[in-house]
Design a protein around this nucleic acid. Sequence first.
DNA 1: GCGATCAGGT
DNA 2: CACACCTGATCGC
Length: 631
Amino acid sequence: MSSFAGRMKEYPTISLDRFDRENLHARAYFLSHCHKDHMKGLKGPLLKRKLQFSRTVRLYCSFVTKELLLNNPKYAFWEEYIVALELESPTQISLVDEASGEKEEVVVTLLPAGHCPGSVMFLFEGSKGNVLYTGDFRFAAGDASRIELLHSGSRVKDIQSVYLDSTFYDPRFYQIPTREVCLKGILELVKNWISQSSHHVVWLNCKAAYGYEYLFTNLGDEFNTQIHVNSLSMFKKMPEILSYVTTDRRTQIHACRHPKDDEYFQGNRLPCGCTAADGTPLRIISIKPSTMWFGERTKKTNVIIKTGASSFRACFSFHSSYSEIKDFLSYLQPVNIYPSVIPIGRTLAEVTQLLKLMCRKQSDHSRLIYKPLGVLKRCRVERPTYGNTHKPDRCSCCTCLQVTVWCMTYKTYGLQTFAECTVRPHLHTVTETKTDHFYFVEEEEEEHEGQGDAKPAKEEVMKEPEEKMEEEGKENCHAPKWEDFFTTEMLTDSQNSQSHSCCSVTSPSRMTGSQTPELFSDEEPPGNDENFSLTLSASLSNHSSQNMDSCLPDTLILAPEQREQGNVRTSMTSQKEVNDGLILQPELDEVSDSQASSDFNIPCTPESKVPQPDELLQLYRKLASGEERKI
DNA sequence: GCGATCAGGT
DNA sequence: CACACCTGATCGC
């Protein structure tokens, strides 16, 4: 449940998903989706009064959210103040202080969040950088890379902060079966039951929340039926959903909920009654969608659990799992991540600490220059060596003794390239990329201010020396290992995602590798069931033992405790080595820096700042005079 | 009487 | 197996 206070550090005059307290002073409101925990204060009389006296304050949301919101009469007063925005369509919004007239412009883009109908993330782009507020979301691994508007050209945008749905950001929730797998399990369970006779019916015991609709549409398609619900009004303008629901209770699949004091519900399982129109008793099973999660080393997952003679739980999650969140964050690499939910049993400090591991490293700016180069094959060009046996590379464009370039190309995670000049550094700019080479050349201006000394011609500084790979051992011949680039914490995740890392087109459902979910599990002691259990027996397994499968030899993922212990040790070591200048850590820098490669054929990020010639000149002078650490 | 908040249940 | 929401008790205005 969201505990987000409503405001973002970068754009504090905006309020999102909270409408009380300080949020009463916002210049604009944003609603990510229509769940109550994101609507706190939305019907408050103070806010209502404020709107009546305002000419500019509006509530921005998706069209579907607007429809769902206004379906509730308590929120009807919002109608004239809501501005529905199209998905994936950047829109400029003026944030006006009505007292002073002061104005700030921000561009907002709604990105589908996969949480419930109408749910979106908000991407804000303005003077304080790019900020992503996720609302609640369920992304599968790899989904972020498919969202065009998170990219500028082929690169991921520079995200300053992510305000994150961290509901399951805890290693305990390492894996939640994919929607596809869960759906398959439910379809099979329903099929096995309702095919027995027309009096066999299924009750989907759904909470009163939006988000189950795709379950209805898939069941409807599969069994060519409609799903019985209490009301159609909220879907009246949504034909995609409307055609799958009905208020006619003569159907085999129900998602109705019990009306208050409904006599039918007393002692019965189906809220709308337990007999057919002709008086025949219905044979009812209930399926309760619930979140199920599985540990890192779990091999088998069961997406259906039998909880009683005629009751089941079915795996269903509105939120991304830990591994899905990590995949998402690894891809975006924001500078800051702020949790909007504290998982049960955790503290804010713990979650914040865990999220720090996923933030872009910000330390030691002076040593590193970030150069996003586009999409290349993974390769390491050079590894810094400080021993006597390895001769430093000489920069061929000048007297610079050593230029060390790290190249990591990894489509799923975005390209990061890092350059370090340890002696008399120059500012080099990438102008060309190839499969296994890239080139650094001097910037071409600087002519007007004459230091008069040699202006190096545009030429190659360094290529990949194939032989350098030998020192890494044979296993490193083809590509660098992830250990070389990330902390162990990140690595562990990367190991898990090796399969998708190498092929970003791989189905996201394959993210968790070898884990082949089983469809059904039985919590009941054996022998207490009716004949229906026979139809399931082939795929039943013991739920309580599911986490004991972790020792199976084909489980490749490390255990959490191993991972964490290893992480602490390795992180400390690598940090020391970084401090000692022995190992380069991948670092990112401001986007404006990245845009210096003017002849690189990927379009610039619109909001980024291209350095002016005079700024570059100053930079060069500082570098030349050995002031590199102040850059 | 109304709204906010919390606990507890599903 | 930790979603979101409802109900009821309590408190303050």
